[in-house]
Each structure stands twice: as structure tokens, then as C-alpha cells.
Simulated assay, not measured.
Amino acid sequence: MTSVGIDRAPDAALVRRPARVRFLWLLVTAGVLAALMVASVALGSRDVTWSDVWAALGGADDTLEQAAVAKRMPRTLLAVVIGAALGLAGCVMQGVTRNPLADPGILGVNMGASLAVVTAVAFFGLTSPTGYIWVAMAGAAVSAVFVYAVGSLGRGGATPLKLALAGTATSVAFASLVSAVALPRNDIAGSFKLWQIGGVGGASYERIGQVLPFLAVGLAVCLLSARGLNSLALGDELAAGLGERVAVIRAMAALGAVVLCGASTAVAGPIGFVGLVVPHACRLLVGVDHRWLLPFSALTGAALLTAADVAGRVVTRPADVEVGIVTALIGAPFFIHIVRRQKVRDL
């Protein structure tokens, strides 16, 4: 793929960060994530004590409080792995397209995965959880190619604004198709209604075990693409002049992002805006070197989604607000801010 949109990061993000500063921020983020995981286990619609937490960690579920903690533990782990996957995928997409607006939700990738899963369940009787993941990844890949092809039409090629508009239009169209497929089917409409919003409430260790190998493969492919993404940031011509195989780098990095998006959507639904917000915030802290930016985006994405899940449980308790709604409330204003900062004519 070829792209012409360049992410004009703030001056603070262009300054080279010393390794010790980057490592310090990495430790701080890891500490924040650990604290959020503890909060996710301890906080919710039912108050629990530390003795209940320790008892549940030891396998006890004798009381309602201990049972609540035991239910929150896989939910917390799923929020961590899905958040890390989406944060990393968003960072890779922004690097591959050199587009500051790139995000699995905005570019229509998540909704393409959703449409593929709903169609496979409704018309082909798909029931295998692993099958969901394969189908979701295929749908994510087809949607990504379609959006890029549409965004490349006309003068100027695939500019960031055209990609964002094509992705948004595709997401809306696919969301309508998902509703059109699912609503007439009473046997699947109820389960897909909540899944379509995006959330981690139905987490289980079995589901995590099913999706983890796919996420591990996507994670490895993306991290191995870090050096190549640094070259792409210089421009295709300069990267090629340095001996890099631009098409191969772009294809491999995009493949890793598609695997992460498809697997995440299959398990948690189409959660948006994590991949948009996280990379921009991380560049302010560790700079633009993808060898640091990618792992930092994974940690920050995990922290953001865990925090959003905790907020959704605490703010309206005893009811739960799905994490997809919370991330949309955070991400939509940020998206508007990015567009205003970049200025439409520069996009």
C-alpha cells in the first residue's frame, strides 16, 4: 500500500527522548496498569473486602463477594489483552498509513469483522469460537482493503481525510447491514445486541485461552515490524533508498494489525477509539521511535480499556455501562480535536 498522509506530531513528540526517560515512563505505565487491574477486581456493583479478594485468588467462591471477585478476574484479564491489542493495532495502522486519524474503528476494520461474524452465524450456522476468530480476521482484512481502495480514488491518492471519510462511511454501512442480518433472527438478535456495542462483561478463562494464541501472533508480527515502520515514517522513496522493501514491510505490519483487530472483535465486539487515542498520547511521552512506541502503546491501551471498564461499572452501579460506550465518550472528542488541530486542508 502507498500513502501520502503524514502525522504531524507536536514538537514535543519530535524531540528524541533519552532511553532512561522512556524506560521510566514504561515502568510508570506498567505500575498504573497493575493498580487498575487491582481496582478492576475490587470495584464493582458489589463491595468486597481485601479478604474476599485474597480468598477468591486462592480459588474460593463461598460467598457472594468472593464469587463476584472470581467473576471479575477473567473480565480484568480480557480487558487487559483486548486493550493491548487495540492500542498496538492502532499504532501500527497509523504507522503503515502515515495517517493521524487511523484507528480500527474509524477505518471500518472492526465493523467489517463484526459483519463477517454475524453473517457467518446467521447464514452458515457458525458456532465454533475459534471459527468466529478466523471469520472476524477475514472480515477485517477485506474491510481494510476495501476502505483503502475507496480512499485512494481521485486526486491525491489515499489522504488521511479521504481514508477517514471512507472508513466512517463503511463503518456506518456495515453497522446497518449487521442490524439487517441480526434483527430478523430472534435466535441471535439478543446475544449480538450487546456484543455489537463492544464489551468484556462475558469474559471467561476459556474465551481468553481461545483468543490468546491469535493475539500473540499478531503482537509478534507487529513488534517485529517496528524497525520497518521507522523507515516508512521517512517516506516510501527514502525508505526504498535505504534498502527497505516498502511493500513487504507495509503488508506484514498491516497483517499483524488485522489479526489483532479481528481476534479482538470476535471476542469483545467492535470497541472503538482505543487505537486512536493511545498512540497520540504515547508519542508525547516516548517519542516516535516505534521500537519504544509499540510496546508502550500496548501497555497504555491495556490501561485505558481496564480503566474504562472500571468506570463503566462504578459510575452507574449497580448497572454496567459497556466499555465500548465509555471509550466512545472518550474518543469522539479526541477525534474532533485531532481533526481541528491538523486542519482539514492539511489532511
Score class of each variant (00 low, 15 high):
Met1Asp: 05
Gly5Ile: 09
Arg8Phe: 14
Arg8Glu: 14
Ala9Asp: 12
Val15Pro: 00
Val15Phe: 10
Arg17Phe: 03
Pro18Ser: 11
Arg20Gly: 03
Val21Gln: 13
Arg22Val: 13
Phe23His: 09
Leu26Met: 15
Thr29Arg: 04
Gly31Ile: 12
Gly31Glu: 10
Val32Ser: 08
Val32Trp: 04
Val32Tyr: 08
Ala35Met: 14
Leu36His: 03
Ala39Val: 15
Ser45Gln: 08
Val53Ser: 09
Trp54Glu: 11
Trp54Met: 14
Trp54Asn: 05
Gly59His: 00
Ala68Pro: 02
Val69Ala: 06
Arg72Trp: 05
Thr76Pro: 06
Ala79Glu: 11
Val81Ser: 07
Val81Met: 06
Ala84Tyr: 04
Gly87Thr: 11
Leu88Glu: 01
Ala89Val: 07
Val92Pro: 02
Met93Tyr: 14
Gln94Phe: 02
Gln94Leu: 02
Asn99Met: 10
Leu101Met: 12
Asp103Asn: 03
Pro104Ser: 07
Ile106Trp: 01
Gly108Asn: 04
Asn110Ile: 04
Asn110Leu: 05
Met111Asn: 14
Met111Trp: 06
Gly112Tyr: 03
Leu115Ala: 13
Ala116Cys: 10
Val117Asp: 09
Ala120Ser: 12
Phe124Cys: 06
Thr127Ser: 13
Thr130Glu: 12
Ile133Thr: 08
Ile133His: 02
Met137Glu: 09
Ala138Val: 15
Gly139Pro: 01
Ala141Pro: 01
Val142Ala: 15
Tyr148Thr: 14
Ser152His: 06
Arg155Asp: 01
Arg155Ile: 02
Pro160Ala: 15
Pro160Gly: 14
Pro160Gln: 13
Leu163Pro: 04
Ala166Arg: 02
Thr168Arg: 01
Ala169Gln: 03
Val178Arg: 01
Val181Cys: 07
Asn186Val: 07
Ser191Arg: 15
Gly199Tyr: 01
Arg207Tyr: 10
Arg207Pro: 01
Gln210Thr: 12
Gln210Phe: 02
Ala216His: 00
Ala216Ser: 07
Val217Gly: 05
Val221Trp: 05
Val221Phe: 05
Ser225Lys: 00
Ala226Met: 12
Gly228Gln: 11
Leu229Trp: 07
Asn230Lys: 06
Ser231Glu: 13
Leu232Arg: 08
Leu232Asp: 06
Leu232Ala: 06
Leu232Cys: 10
Ala233Pro: 08
Ala239Gly: 03
Ala239Asn: 00
Leu242Met: 15
Ala254Gly: 14
Ala257Tyr: 02
Cys261Lys: 00
Thr265Val: 15
Val267Thr: 15
Ala268Thr: 10
Gly269Leu: 14
Val278Asn: 03
Ala281Trp: 10
Leu284Asn: 08
Leu285Phe: 14
Val288Tyr: 00
Val288Gly: 08
His290Ile: 01
Arg291Trp: 11
Leu293Cys: 10
Phe296His: 13
Thr300Trp: 12
Gly301Leu: 04
Ala308Phe: 07
Val310Glu: 02
Val314Cys: 06
Val314Lys: 08
Val315Ile: 15
Gly324Val: 10
Leu329Lys: 00
Ile338Gly: 05
Lys343Tyr: 06
Lys343Val: 14
